[in-house]
């Protein structure tokens, strides 16, 4: 009786050992105790990164097979993929190597094609170029630097409008002018009336600048573009270029406006219309405060601020995850310079 009991114990114990070994074999990344059943595909990559035997092959995150081996064929990195039999891969599908874990594990991701023909055993699957993590780091670093420069210019432009302690800005100068030349302004009011009317109607350079939402919208567009740039580094530099150019355009336009104003104010013949100008100007400044028009929105609209900070936060988060200090500093500087 005792003997039978011991035999049962030994048998149980031995089976437990086998089960444990099997579980360990299946859990570990390169478990090859039993080869997965399925058909084989070959995929040639420019760079296999750290893909190794036993890594997963996934479609939209669902595991459909494993990497059975890697080899170098004709100077190209080749991965042999074992795909589960029940999964059919369209013939125009594309495989790529992506990062799947923070510890540096990779997997092969397959993007299904449209074809109704399917790959069979031994076929070669098309591949997409491998995104090198290091390249992404470098690009994000560049983007940060450029953002930094762009925001610096924006700040500079704004300062020239609002002015600061050392250097009176556009509006302050304008105010002083009005106070000091109240008489002449009054005399030029009449002359100005027609001009300001056209300004108020949105004609002429300054008018368009102040009234037109187009510029504001273009900035907002840039911001949304920036957002997509942050998620997809491709084409980022181009968009940034546009942003920089647009901002520079604003600055130029403002500068041009200042010229026009100067010219307008120095003309005696319109002095008597100045009262009307003052009235219109007050209206303009009210609008600025109320957040209307491009400048107003730039100055008072929180939405733009949030858009920009959201973009920055995304960029920052990305960079944080990458542990790269350089770009973070650049973006940080850009953020503090702007807001």
């Amino acid at each position: 009786m005792k003997e039978t009991l011991n035999t049962a114990r030994v048998g149980f114990f031995f089976l437990m050992g086998l089960v444990l070994i099997y579980i360990v074999a299946q859990s570990l990344s390169t478990g090859t105790l039993f080869r997965d059943r399925g058909y084989e595909l070959q995929a040639q990559f420019t760079n296999l990164q750290q893909v190794k035997e036993g890594d997963d092959v996934r479609v939209a995150g669902v595991k459909i097979g494993t990497v059975r081996g890697t080899a170098l064929e004709d100077g190209k990195a080749t991965a042999i993929l074992t795909i589960n039999d029940e999964v059919q891969v369209p013939i125009d599908s594309k495989a790529r190597v992506i990062l799947s874990g923070l510890l540096g594990t990779n997997q092969v991701d397959i993007q299904y094609g449209e074809s109704s023909e399917y790959l069979s055993d031994g076929d070669t699957i098309e591949t997409l170029p491998t995104t090198d993590l290091n390249e992404i780091f470098a690009k994000i670093g560049d983007v940060g630097d450029r953002l930094d420069g762009a925001f610096d210019q924006v700040t500079e432009a704004l300062r020239s409008i609002t002015g600061d302690e050392d250097e009176p800005g556009l509006f302050k100068n304008l105010n002083e002018l009005v106070v000091e030349n109240r008489e002449s302004i009054r005399t030029t009011t009449k002359n100005l009336e027609t001009i300001t009317d056209t300004i108020a109607r949105g004609e002429g350079t300054l008018g368009r600048l102040l009234q037109d939402d187009e510029v504001y919208q273009s900035i907002q567009r840039i911001t949304t573009d920036l957002e997509s740039v942050a998620t997809n580094a491709k084409g980022f530099s181009g968009e940034i270029q546009v942003l920089v150019e647009d901002v520079q355009g604003i600055v130029r336009k403002v500068e041009a406006g200042e010229g026009t104003l100067g010219r307008l104010l120095s003309d005696d013949s319109i002095a008597r219309e100045i009262e009307l100008v003052a009235k219109n100007l007050r209206e303009i400044s009210d609008r600025l405060n109320a957040g209307e028009g491009t400048l107003g929105k730039l100055l008072s609209d929180d939405a733009l601020y949030y858009e920009a900070t959201a973009v920055l936060r995304k960029a920052e988060a990305t960079l944080d995850g990458l542990g790269n200090q350089g770009p973070i500093t650049a973006v940080g500087i850009a953020a503090s310079a702007l807001f």
């Binding site: 070994i21 360990v24 570990l28 990344s29 105790l33 036993g54 874990g101 510890l103």
Partner: peptide, 17 residues
């Protein structure tokens, strides 16, 4: 356990056995 499953190969366990 990610550290184990990602970097310990079954060969390591097999070597141990």
């Amino acid at each position: 356990f990610d550290g184990i499953t990602n970097f310990v190969a079954f060969k390591d366990v097999l070597d141990g056995l």
